[in-house]
Nucleic acid binder design. Structure first.
Length: 642
RNA sequence: GCGCUCGUAGCUCAGCGGAUAGAGCACCGGACUUCUAAUCCGACGGUCGCAGGUUCGAAUCCUGCCGGGCGCGCCA
């Protein structure tokens, strides 16, 4: 199955659908005559020339809306066939306003080669685009990207806000418009950000959604290792992100405190307490000895009781101690869950039996070879899965069924589970079980698969084995690089990407970590604002700020970057991609540093305080606000001094 | 073998079918009597794994191949 992939695609499609009909505002290609005033790039996808705002539909396609495109006959293009809704999206209104005509011209070399190979194809590049080559110093990344999709409401707001503020509209290349904003319009962003404070960037894009977000869920048989740490960092950030977009989120940690693994854990503790060697398939490591000692200390005389009784006590106390340790290290990492859900309770409350009964009532259960099976193959799974083994014991999967039902019964619209790639095999059966209880898995269950973390030390991969005790733990990583750097490092990469974490590099040379770059920007602003306060300079009332004074190119760049923040958050939330926030912050920090480099804020010597001074103070305060809010989403601190 | 997944600069990684594919690090050359130089500016660096296909347009979507990772139990 290609579920993980499919899910991401759905998320993108959803984001695109939400943005349909919207006019995305991208950052800019600075126009030559536009110094000071904001230039905002608008994408006009395709060479559409639709005559009304909705645009014509692509023939043979029911879901896509928008732009008309002569060549789009519905053959071949598959617009909206489920995959490329986005490809048809976004631009109706603009296309209607300003049709673009393709021109002949030069095309990029590589594309030219490709075109030549295919024996067709001509020009795409427009003269103007070439002229701009030397004028343009984009604030990295964002600048070239046209049109992040926006919600309908956002689009209307944007359109209304822009009315009367446009100074000029230019065709800026194949499918792009540059809209030059009237002086001062961008400057209001600074005021908005400062005024909104911690709320700046928050939206109601996901309002009304009640989500259950499960991550980490490491069994309490050992400390959280590096793999779980990645999900702790990413999952917690995702939770904050979803909340910032208006969703109601419950962070949940499911732990297995029943079954064979826990038995092995208890037996390992016992062995350690008695000074016996670790049993076959048992757990080793110093923590086992530590916990065993604590259990014995808490229960004098335990070692003299009978074996079964001992094992039970070691299990109960061992799990408690181990789990307390897990919670503590996670808390030190800044990750706290709303619910810690015990698998054992599912057995004890009869939830498990009820779940099986329900699956049976739905007609998906059968018995074979003395075991009870769920016919998950009816719903696309590779093979049927056992619920109760032939020895009468329920499987882990049976508990999964009960747990899923429990979440749904608690009123969650959507059950989101983050899993490592090593658990990718669960996706099929999980989807199937949701279908078997009568849900639409595409709507109620979202499984986010993430690639694993590789550790490198001395240029050699560090192999991990929990039982052999050669594990790199959450706390090891935090000790080596600090919680901020650890969280940031893990959260700044896409979960689709296997990442190599070089322990030498991260521990030795922490300057390499981009988190310092971002944090430094915040510290720098904090320092500047402290100096301003020393000079008796205050921001004052929003109404008194002359935002039109901000007309330097670097100021415009910074304002535009600040204005993108709310969209960055909603897009990242919808795509389940917290790393986008980190990347945005890096760009924002860079934009600020460049502003700082060329725009003096505070008066020196006996210089006078001007409206520009105040306006720049607001701009700095706004940047600090956004850096803080963004870092907060990632669970990273925004230091005032470094 | 089957399934999933990834492959972008020397390294670590961004890149939501759209403009000339970016950042940090590394390396080279510049900028501090001035708000934190943990900064800024410049230079260098790319067959976006390979080959087809779809499209006006592909790093992005599809197919095949190559390479890495993970998974294929009445384990958890």
């Amino acid at each position: 199955m290609r579920v993980g992939h499919h899910l991401r695609r759905r998320a993108r499609a959803a984001a695109a659908a939400a943005g349909s009909g919207a006019v995305g505002v991208a950052a800019s290609r600075p126009g030559s005559a536009a110094a000071g005033a904001g230039v905002v790039g608008l994408a006009v996808l395709g060479q559409g020339h639709s005559s009304d705002a909705g645009g014509a539909r692509c023939a043979g396609e029911s879901r896509s809306r928008t732009w008309a495109f002569p060549a789009c006959s519905g053959r071949g293009r598959r617009c909206g066939g489920g995959r490329s809704v986005r490809s048809c999206g976004d631009t109706g209104a603009v296309a209607g306003r300003r049709p673009y005509r393709r021109e002949r011209g030069r095309r990029p070399r590589r594309a030219a080669r490709r075109g030549a190979r295919r024996g067709r194809h001509r020009a795409t590049e427009e003269p103007r685009a070439r002229r701009l080559r030397h004028q343009r110093r984009p604030p990295a990344g964002q600048a070239r990207r046209p049109a992040a999709p926006r919600g309908r409401r956002g689009a209307r707001r944007g359109a209304a806000g822009a009315r009367g503020h446009r100074a000029r509209v230019d065709v800026a290349g194949p499918g792009f418009l540059n809209i030059t904003l009237a002086k001062g319009v961008l400057g209001t962003i600074a005021v908005q950000a400062v005024t909104a404070g911690a709320a700046y960037g928050r939206t109601d894009a996901l309002a009304g959604q009640k989500l259950n977000l499960e991550f980490v869920s490491a069994n309490p048989t050992g400390p959280v290792h590096i793999g779980g740490t990645r999900w702790a960092a990413v999952g917690d950030a995702l939770g904050r992100l979803l909340e910032a977009s208006g969703a109601s989120v419950t962070r949940e940690y499911y732990f297995n405190d029943a079954g064979a693994q826990i038995d092995r854990f208890a037996l390992s503790l016992m062995a350690a307490a008695h000074g016996r060697p670790v049993p076959e398939d048992g757990y080793a490591g110093d923590y086992i000895v530590d916990i065993a000692e604590q259990v014995v200390a808490a229960e004098p005389g335990l070692l003299e009781r009978d074996e079964a009784e001992q094992q039970e006590r070691f299990r109960v106390r061992g799990v408690d101690l181990m789990f307390a340790e897990i919670k503590r290290t996670l808390a030190d990492f800044g990750v706290v869950f709303d619910v810690y859900f015990s698998e054992r309770t599912l057995h004890e409350t009869g939830a498990l039996d009820k779940a099986i009964a329900r699956l049976r009532a739905n007609g998906h259960v059968y018995e074979a070879d003395g075991a009870v099976w769920l016919r998950t193959t009816d719903f696309g799974d590779d093979k049927d899965r056992p619920l109760i083994k032939s020895d009468g014991a329920p499987t882990y999967f049976a508990a999964d069924c009960a747990y899923y039902l429990d979440k749904r019964d608690r009123g969650f619209d959507k059950v989101v589970i983050m899993l490592g790639a090593d658990h990718a095999g669960y996706v099929g059966r999980y989807k199937a079980l949701a279908a078997a209880v009568g849900d639409d898995p595409e709507a109620t269950l979202e499984i986010l698969l993430g690639q694993l973390v590789n550790l490198v030390r001395d240029g050699e991969p560090v192999r991990m084995s929990k039982r052999a005790g050669t594990v790199v733990l959450l706390e090891d990583l935090v000790e080596a690089v600090g919680a901020d750097a650890a969280r940031y490092a893990l959260a700044r990469a896409s979960v689709d990407q296997q990442i190599d974490l070089d322990l030498d590099l991260w521990s030795r040379q922490t300057n390499d970590n981009p988190v310092f770059y971002v944090q430094y920007a915040h510290a720098r602003i904090s320092s500047l604002l402290r100096n301003a306060a020393d000079l008796g300079l205050v921001l004052g009332e929003a109404a008194d700020v002359d935002v039109a004074a901000l007309e330097h190119q670097r100021e415009s760049d910074l304002l535009r970057a600040l204005g993108e923040f709310p969209r960055v958050l909603t897009a990242a939330a919808e795509l389940r991609a917290p790393h986008r926030v980190a990347r945005y912050l890096e760009e924002l920090a860079g934009t600020y540093h460049r502003f700082y480099d060329s725009c003096r804020v505070l008066p020196r010597g006996d210089e006078e305080v001007t409206p520009l001074t105040t306006a720049r103070l607001w701009l700095c305060a706004a940047t600090a606000t956004v850096l803080r809010n963004g870092l907060d989403v990632l669970g990273v601190t925004a230091p005032e001094r470094m």
